[in-house]
Each structure stands twice: as C-alpha cells, then as structure tokens.
Design a protein around this nucleic acid. Structure first.
Lengths: 235, 235
DNA sequence: GTCGTTAGGTGCTACTGTAGCAACACTTTG
DNA sequence: CAAAGTGTTGCTACAGTAGCACCTAACGAC
C-alpha cells in the first residue's frame, strides 16, 4: 500500500487540502499549521501552491478555503472511466416507487454517496449527501464485507482507538452480509437497506432503502444483482 | 499568485491526479509519465503516494484511476464554508416553472456547475454536469466580466494559443455584461441565459436559462439579485 | 508452451528542491 | 495607540527526492 518511497510533500500538501475541505470555516495559514502540527512557513508554501493551482483560495481576510479547481476535479472524477455514468443510468431504471436508490464507495470508515435518489425523485441522483459513517450504512456494510476481520479491526483501531472491533455488533453484521451475499441493515424507523457490491475491482456498492416486508427481500436482491451485472459489463 | 517558493512535488503530484480524473480510461504509470513528460520512477512514486491516500487506485490490470477518497474530498468541498449549501437552498426557491436554474464557478476557461436544476426538476440540483467552456455559458460570461481584458487575453493565450482574444466576440460580450451588470447569453434554439455573480469574494455566479421574452429580463435580473443577496448575507 | 517486450516497482546514493530561521509588512485586538 | 498575531519572503543547510540500474510480473506474438 505504502510505496517504497512515498512523497511527503504530496502527502502533506493533500493533508492541507483535506483540512480545508473538512473545515466549516476558512482557515489562516498559521492556524492550519497549528491544527496539523506543521511548521508555519512550510504550511504557507503548501497552501500558496494549492492556491496557485486553484484548489485553494484566500478570502477577503486572507484566510484559506477550497478553490474552484477542486470542484472541477471532483466533477471530472465522477465522469472518469465511465462506470459511474453507466451506473447512474442503470440505477435510474431501478427506481422503485417507494424506495431510495443509492450507490456509494467506502473510504476509511466513511461511505461517500455517488448517487442518491429518494422515492420522491427530488434529489435527482445527487452527490450532495455528506459522507456517513460506514457502520451506519447498508452500503458500508456490504463494502466492509469484502474486507477481512483483521482489516476491519485495523480500520477501527486507527480511527477511534476506543472500539477495537468497530461499533458494537459490526463484525457480526459483516459476517451476515458475507454469508448472505448482500447486506441487510436496519436503519431505524422501520426502514431497512439492502445492498450489494459491484463486481470487478470497482469497490462500490449499490442498494435500496425503505420499508418493505421480508418477503420482498429476494426480489430486491435479484433486482440489485441484475443492475450490478449491467453496470459491470464491459463497456 | 505563484508563491516565492512553490512546492514542485505537490504541483506534479496533483498533475498526476488531474490527469487520472480527466482520463476516460485507467492509465499505466509509464503511460502517464509519457503523457506528462515526467520521469517514470518519479511518476510511479507520485501515483503510489496518491494511491496510499486513497485518491488513486489500481485496477485489475494494475492501471491507475481515481480512488474513493477523491469523491469524499469532492463532496466535502461542496459543504465547506457553508455558502454552497446556503445557495442551494436559496436557488431551490428560485425555481421558475419553465427555467433552468444554475450556479457555477470559473476555473481557467471552464465553468463547473455546483447546482443545476432543470425545469422538469429531474436533476435535483445535481453537480453531475461536466464542466463546459466558459465562453459557452452565461455564468462563464458573468464571471469573466469580473476579469480585466488583459487577464482574459492571457487566459486564452495560454489555453488555445490560436485565439488571442478568446472565442470571437467574447470581449464584446464580456463588456456588455460589465455595462449591464448581468450577462445575457444566447445559447441557441431560442434559449438564453441571464447570469450575475455573487458578491464578496465567492467567485461564483448564478443564472437562469430558457425561453423568455425581453420584457421578462428586468424581473429575472431582480430575482437573481435578490437570491444573491440572500446567499451572501452573513451566516 | 517459449521468447521478447513492456510494464510496475525497488534499492542505492547523489543532489537539488525543500525546510526552517530570521525578518518584514500587514492586520487585528485590547 | 501598542502589542500580538498574521501572511509571507530570502537565504542557505540539509534531508527528502530523483534517477539509474535492476528486479519481477504481465502481455502478446509465434
């Protein structure tokens, strides 16, 4: 995973960018240096470099925030390789009358939605949903089922340092998902999610959420698998 | 703009990332090195570093493509500072029955849409639209009207090398937008866009597009200005 | 199957891009 | 207003980086 010779400047520059993206307010360069425990001059140079690239910018108080090029990069990323575009078209056709349809990817312990469509059709496949903790998402469960228990433990050991095995019951839920070939997650309020991972090396999952009787599960799983097959077929 | 001491590793690492994001297919490390005219070992290390951060990943043929963390970064960027979230709420309320509503930012010579809502309400404020050439977008015109003619010339000299003044008539269109305080762009097929920039240091524009008579223009401009005021008020 | 070519990636070490110190101008706070 | 904090620069030492030589893996042609 880690290369023989990682580039520390790139790592630290991107740490600055990520801190800006995650901050609810613009950050001063020394403030960011303190936050990340970097030397101030260095931080300023990394930020200025990011600003030169349009990925960051300064506000009228000279504080730094993300810049327009990050949006260009984010949007371009949605269109690269083609699988996401293809998936969006397939998932549009998966619309149930009363279910939310979603697709997402897992990174560390969060799920990031790349497609999310409420039954009301009001969010049109938006990618505007904030990343959520993977353990609170059916898609996250499905994706984590592709990891070994040791990998999961390592993930949560780093992350929270308090719950070695991740949130209570997670390993059992993940084991169920592995056994069944799909994740069934009780989201609360009677709502549940069924999710499966896409094949190949895509590391994405698709799922449907809402209120449905147990008897609907096999059919929904079948629909998801059919959609997954369409998404992953060579294009 | 360029700091006294830019960090070249960060610049080149991000060039690799951008090339992946912009590529329709996954790229081998040497292939990317040739594309960017970088030394292969260095390229491999930059890519491996990006992969370690989750911003890139390898497919089953060991070729590189963007990784899940880039989507997390992209989505977080939409939520940072709050102005975009605030704008989305305001723009939802701007819905005309027959007009497309949009918001975007300018980076180099492209406009990237951060909100885009068709009259049919089927895209739900999506950010899925690919960036478009700024000169083909009313929002782009409005944003370019904030730049000097020299800045515009410099932008297009670098970009296309063939049209020093940008696309034909661009400077005139931009001058009109400056004079009027809004951009009016004829998109074709009878469709037009009216766009204005948001105040402060936000570098974003909002606009409405569709078919409307000249007599509607003042009212639409007024609606846009009212929306802009709501978006930029202190929050 | 073999062979040749291209690929992704590593270890070593020279070197140059980067980092930190000292300093400056600017901004904010009390 | 003065003091404190800020964003940023120039200089130069040095350590992170780059490139060479090499390895293993993968692919395509025969």
């Amino acid at each position: 995973m880690l290369p023989a010779q990682p580039n520390q400047s790139l790592i630290d520059g991107l740490a600055c960018l990520h801190a800006l993206a995650a901050s609810p307010a613009a950050l001063g360069s020394r403030e960011l240096a303190r936050l990340l425990e970097f030397e101030p001059t260095r931080t300023n140079r990394l930020l200025k470099t990011l600003a030169h690239l349009g990925l960051a910018e300064q506000d009228e108080k000279r504080k730094y925030r993300v810049g327009p090029a990050i949006h260009v990069l984010g949007v371009e990323s949605l269109h690269t390789s083609g699988f996401i575009d293809r998936a969006v078209e397939v998932l549009k056709g998966l619309d149930g009358e009363h279910l939310t349809v979603a697709m997402g990817v897992l990174w560390q312990d969060v799920v990031c939605y790349l497609y999310h469509q409420y039954p009301s059709h009001t969010d049109g496949g938006t990618v505007r949903h904030r990343p959520v903790p993977a353990s609170t998402s059916g898609l996250g469960l499905a994706l984590m089922a592709q990891m070994s228990d040791d990998e999961l433990r390592a993930l949560y050991a780093v992350r929270s340092g308090a719950q070695r095995d991740g949130p209570t019951g997670l390993l059992e839920q993940v084991a169920d998902a592995r056994r069944q070939g799909y994740a069934l997650f009780a989201a609360g309020g009677g709502e549940r999610t069924i999710a499966i991972v896409l094949g190949g090396s895509l590391h994405a999952a698709i799922g449907v959420s809402g209120i449905f009787p147990d008897g609907d599960i096999p059919g929904l799983v079948s629909d998801l698998r059919s959609a997954a097959a369409q998404i992953t077929e060579t294009g």
